[in-house]
Lab assay of single mutants.
Amino acid sequence: AQASVVANQLIPINTRLTLVMMRSEVVTPVGIPAEDIPALVSMQVNRAVPLGTTLMPDMVKGYA
Rank of each mutant, 00 (worst) to 15 (best):
S24C: 05
V27H: 04
Q2W: 14
A1E: 15
M22G: 00
L40S: 00
G52K: 04
V49F: 03
A64W: 03
V27L: 05
A34H: 09
P12A: 12
M22P: 00
E35R: 06
Q9V: 13
N14L: 11
N8A: 15
I11K: 00
L40A: 01
A48P: 08
T18D: 05
T15G: 06
A1Q: 14
A39H: 14
I37Y: 03
V6R: 03
L55D: 01
L51K: 13
P38K: 13
L55Y: 01
V30S: 09
I11C: 03
T18A: 08
L17V: 03
T54N: 02
V5T: 07
S24Q: 14
I37T: 07
D36E: 15
V26F: 11
L40R: 00
Q9D: 10
I13C: 15
N8E: 07
G31N: 01
T18F: 04
L40Q: 01
S42E: 09
V26H: 11
V20D: 07
A7H: 01
V41F: 08
T53K: 13
M43I: 04
A1F: 13
R47K: 11
D58G: 13
V26M: 08
I37Q: 06
L55C: 02
K61L: 13
T53G: 10
R47L: 09
N14K: 06
V5M: 02
Q2F: 10
A48Q: 14
E25I: 04
V20C: 07
D36I: 08
I32M: 03
V60S: 01
P50M: 14
Y63S: 03
E35T: 12
I32G: 02
G62C: 06
Q9Y: 15
V49Q: 02
L51R: 11
L51V: 11
A39K: 15
E25M: 06
Q9I: 13
I32F: 03
I32S: 00
G62H: 08
Q44A: 15
V49H: 02
L19N: 05
V49T: 05
M22A: 01
R47C: 04
T18W: 03
I13A: 11
T15L: 05
S24P: 13
S42I: 03
V20H: 14
V45P: 02
D36L: 10
Q2N: 12
P12N: 09
A34G: 13
Q9S: 14
E25R: 07
A48F: 12
T18H: 08
P57Y: 09
G62P: 09
K61D: 09
V45K: 00
V6E: 02
T15W: 13
L55S: 00
I37V: 09
V20L: 15
M22L: 13
L40Y: 02
V20P: 06
P29L: 05
R47M: 12
M59I: 05
V49S: 02
M22Y: 02
A34N: 05
L55F: 09
P57S: 09
P12D: 08
D58E: 10
A3D: 08
M59N: 08
Q2T: 14
V5D: 01
M59P: 00
T28D: 15
Y63G: 04
P38F: 10
R23L: 04
N8Q: 10
V41D: 04
D36R: 15
Q9T: 14
Q44K: 09
P57W: 10
L19M: 14
V27T: 12
R23Q: 04
L40N: 00
T54V: 09
V30I: 12
Y63W: 15
M56N: 08
I11Y: 00
R47D: 10
A64N: 12
L19P: 06
P29K: 07
I37N: 00
A34L: 03
V60L: 08
A34F: 06
T15D: 05
A48H: 13
Q9K: 12
V45T: 10
V6M: 08
T28P: 01
V6L: 08
L10P: 15
D58K: 05
T28F: 10
A34P: 07
A64R: 10
S24V: 11
I13Y: 14
D58T: 11
P57F: 06
G52A: 08
A7Q: 00
A48S: 14
M59D: 15
P29Y: 03
I32N: 01
S42G: 10
I37A: 07
P33V: 15
K61G: 08
I11G: 00
A48T: 14
V6D: 01
M59A: 08
S42Y: 12
A39E: 06
T53I: 15
Y63M: 04
Q2K: 07
T53S: 13
I32L: 05
L17H: 00
